[in-house]
């Protein structure tokens, strides 16, 4: 294992408030600096994840998202700006993240996750975050994360509700244990507030920070389900399925 990178004086100052967190400290920050995190899609959820991870000082972010910004993305995609409409989302994301924290290396991929690139992208990271709206991408991310033994944080939202699942391959249920096949009724566009997307994204970012820095406990076998309509947060215990096509034999 490579030695953890040192922090510069500027980094110590930048991250000072989180260096005070019990159980984190300078070693936790150095672990973050050494970490590579892959975020699939940088829309409302993934964009918040990327922003929080950049602010926290994750060393390298790999971001994948195809397509150009549309006006109706702007209620939730906080890495984007109005003058970016019609331009690639990934360009705006990289610019904003570099403005936020120039110490973070950002690898921008202008394509979505697919069977053709998932293995390479997931295999390049220490932790991966799935924030795509399509189940083909989410299930492919899950498949590759389990195959490569890379922790996965899966984020989802609808209206005022959100869900979060942390997959520790071989130790906890994977996404396919919950949803063994692509759901037939999911629609690409759905009702949601940007504040819900940011809530899910911030929760996911904290899980990534915990995993990368060895802080706290990941929610093993617990799906977080929250409803901001009445501010209810519940967890559903989930078991691994022995017949799971993805993780059942691992």
């Amino acid at each position: 294992m490579l030695p953890l990178p040192e922090l510069t004086a500027d980094e110590r100052s930048r991250y000072e408030w989180q260096l005070w967190v019990r159980g984190f400290g300078e070693e936790g920050q150095r672990r973050l600096k050494a970490a590579t995190v892959f975020v699939s899609r940088i829309g409302g959820v993934g964009g918040t994840v990327a922003m929080q991870l950049a602010a926290a000082g994750v060393g390298r972010l790999i971001l994948a998202h195809a397509g150009d910004l549309r006006l109706n993305d702007l209620n939730r995609q906080l890495l984007m700006t109005t003058d970016g409409i019609g331009k690639p989302r990934i360009e705006s994301a990289v610019r904003r993240l570099r403005e936020l924290n120039p110490y973070v290396l950002v690898d921008a991929i202008g394509e979505n996750v697919s069977a053709a690139n998932a293995e390479r992208l997931v295999g390049s990271a220490d932790v991966v975050v799935s924030a795509a709206p399509l189940f083909e991408e989410r299930l492919e991310m899950n498949r590759q994360a389990v195959r490569r033994g890379v922790p996965l944080v899966d984020c989802a939202m609808y209206e005022l509700e959100g869900r979060l699942l942390t997959v520790l391959p071989g130790r906890t249920p994977c996404l396919s244990c919950l949803y063994p096949e692509k759901p037939p009724h999911w629609k690409r566009e759905f009702p949601v507030f940007g504040a819900v997307a940011s809530t899910v994204g911030s929760l996911a970012a904290m899980e990534v920070i915990k995993l990368a820095a060895g802080l706290g406990d990941p929610p093993k076998g617990r799906l977080l389900n929250f409803d901001l309509r009445d501010l209810t947060f519940t967890t559903i215990t989930v078991d691994r399925r022995t017949d799971c096509a993805v993780c059942g034999s691992r």
């Binding site: 829309g43 189940f135 989802a156």
Partner: peptide, 29 residues
């Protein structure tokens, strides 16, 4: 608040006072 897979649903009895939560899949965006 404990997930039951569809293949086990016939083997799991429901009782008075139980809470059954139905969670269709959702995603990011």
């Amino acid at each position: 608040h404990g997930a039951v897979s569809s293949c086990n649903a016939r083997a799991v009895l429901v009782n008075a006072g139980d809470v059954v939560t139905l969670l269709p899949p959702i995603a990011g965006g």
